[in-house]
């Protein structure tokens, strides 16, 4: 097996372990979305999806 894969795997596991306590805390502390909040996110993200598809078609 390629040695770089093993180092990448160790690095990613370390990232997950470092991120895990912070992620748990963030998931606990995140305020609940109010009416219309997700709508305000979906619209710009739909723009990103459309824009990326356009770029793929251009190259």
């Amino acid at each position: 097996m390629d040695w770089t894969k093993i180092i990448w795997a160790v690095a990613i596991v370390a990232m997950i372990l470092v991120l895990w306590p912070r992620a748990k805390q963030m998931m606990k502390d995140t305020p609940k979305a109010e009416k219309g909040d997700w709508q305000a996110v979906v619209l710009p993200l739909a723009f990103v999806v459309g824009f990326v598809i356009l770029l793929i078609m251009l190259v």
Partner: peptide, 9 residues
């Protein structure tokens, strides 16, 4: 957009 924090992480 703080309500996205948990979802993003």
């Amino acid at each position: 957009f703080s309500f996205m924090g948990g979802f993003l992480v």
